[in-house]
Design a binder for these strands. Structure first.
Length: 400
DNA sequence: TCTGGGGTCCTAGGACCC
DNA sequence: TCTGGGGTCCTAGGACCC
């Protein structure tokens, strides 16, 4: 593999920072983005809902750095966050605006370095290998070139959006992702293989993208807490415990080795909608309400598919019960569809296969095995089923 | 003060076919 | 009658990420 120069760019507290751009009067105040209710854009600070007044099942999507200092972090339940930061201002998420700013920062980066892999609304990988000025003959010059380029990117993002970001530049995606987090916010971190023992090995294993709570817990039980400790473990020992694929990958990752390419285009694999109810619903007592919600989810998924000119043939549902146990069911149809009634009928079939003894907390509908609506295969199989769906099945109760 | 919503990828077993 | 593999599709669950 020829030597590459890869950047990872991560926007700093993205949603919260976008909100602060529009509401500079909130600067310095702890701000949490999350929850569902809307607030009028011209409300003044005194009218903003405070976290202490929140009641519901929402989680924090983002916390400003002031809120983080109080212990609030993303994915934390808002009721718990309220206990830590009762005076924090709670803003509902405005995805339209975040998407607009996301497009802005990506366009700014693209004007300098066009080979970009999208990793969601607030982060990207960038291949800097062939960008003029990035590569130089001597090692020292190469790192200096990378640093100058990263600073240019950061300045371009700020120019386009008024927002700050952090950037890591290394020979691969794994290390760049780790590095963009090292000097947040606003940091530029350049790292070479030789720096791995000093800068990467002291970090906890959970900082590796792909090692989550479960793997971290297992490793901890084996006495492995840092990436350096993971690097010291014999590959055979890891493989014996985590399987060939994961064990080998862990070993490579701990040594900072990663040859995954930058992926600039990707076909969508599935489209889904789900909702958590304000209170848990019962299949029998709340049958009518569940039926409405279920149909509404199917209509939304159908319109999402249509908007993106996609059709699919695997229809799935997801239920989460009051004990948080989650089940899925799916069915693959003979033909592709984006039709709400066809999706509703198939999803209804799936629902019949789920025992509904407990109260339900979440309901979701998903369509997978996607194709572009105009693909020959999609057209050939379209309309194979579903002429008899004029009456939608009701939400089934316990007895059937 | 329990735990959102939208995704991807992997595994594993059974059906079915050659 | 009993015995194989290999490959692909379908389904369910789970880990993980943003």
């Amino acid at each position: 593999m020829p030597r590459r120069l890869i950047a990872h760019l991560d926007m700093d507290a993205f949603y919260a920072s976008v909100e602060l751009l529009r509401r500079p009067d909130l600067r310095g105040v702890p701000v949490v983005v999350g929850g569902r209710r809307r607030v009028s854009a011209d409300a003044d600070v005194a009218e903003f809902p405070r976290l202490r007044d929140y009641v519901g099942r929402g989680v924090a999507t983002t916390a400003s750095y002031e809120a983080r200092a109080l212990g609030v972090h993303s994915a934390m339940g808002l009721m718990k966050a309220a206990a830590l930061a009762p005076d924090a201002v709670l803003l509902p998420a405005d995805f339209e605006e975040y998407r607009r700013q996301s497009h802005n920062f990506k366009a700014a980066v693209g004007s300098i370095a066009p080979v970009i892999e999208d990793r969601g609304i607030d982060e990207i990988y960038i291949d800097l290998t062939d960008v003029p000025g990035a590569q130089d003959t001597s090692a020292d010059d190469r790192l200096a070139g990378a640093r100058a380029l990263a600073h240019r990117l950061r300045a371009a993002v700020f120019e386009a959006t008024g927002l700050s970001c952090s950037i890591g530049v290394t020979p691969n995606k794994l290390l760049s992702k780790l590095c963009s987090d090292l000097e947040k916010p606003g940091g530029v971190t350049i790292l070479d293989e030789a720096d791995i023992p000093r800068r990467i090995w002291p970090l906890p294993v959970g900082r590796i993208n792909g090692i989550g709570p479960k793997a971290r817990e297992r490793l901890d039980g084996m006495g492995i807490r840092t990436i350096g400790e993971l690097a010291q473990a014999e590959p055979a020992w890891l493989i014996a415990r985590f399987g060939q694929s994961t064990g080998q990958w862990m070993h490579e990752a701990a040594h900072g080795r990663d040859d995954r390419p930058i992926v600039t285009e990707r076909d969508p694999k599935s489209v889904s909608r789900e909702t958590t109810f304000e209170r848990d619903l019962h299949a029998r007592q709340d049958r009518a309400r569940l039926g409405e919600i279920f149909t509404g989810l199917c209509v939304k998924v159908a319109s999402d598919l249509t908007r993106h000119a996609l059709v699919g043939r695997t229809i799935g549902i997801k239920l989460r019960f009051d004990d948080f146990h989650t089940v899925t069911r799916d069915i693959t149809l003979p033909g592709y569809t984006a039709d709400a009634q066809a999706i509703r009928a198939a999803a209804g079939q799936c629902l019949k296969r789920v025992p509904l003894a407990r109260r339900i907390r979440l309901l979701g509908v998903r369509v997978g095995t996607l194709l572009p609506a105009d693909a020959p295969e999609a057209l050939r199989l379209a309309g194979r089923q579903g002429s008899d769906t004029t009456t939608l099945p009701l939400f089934p109760d316990l007895d059937n």
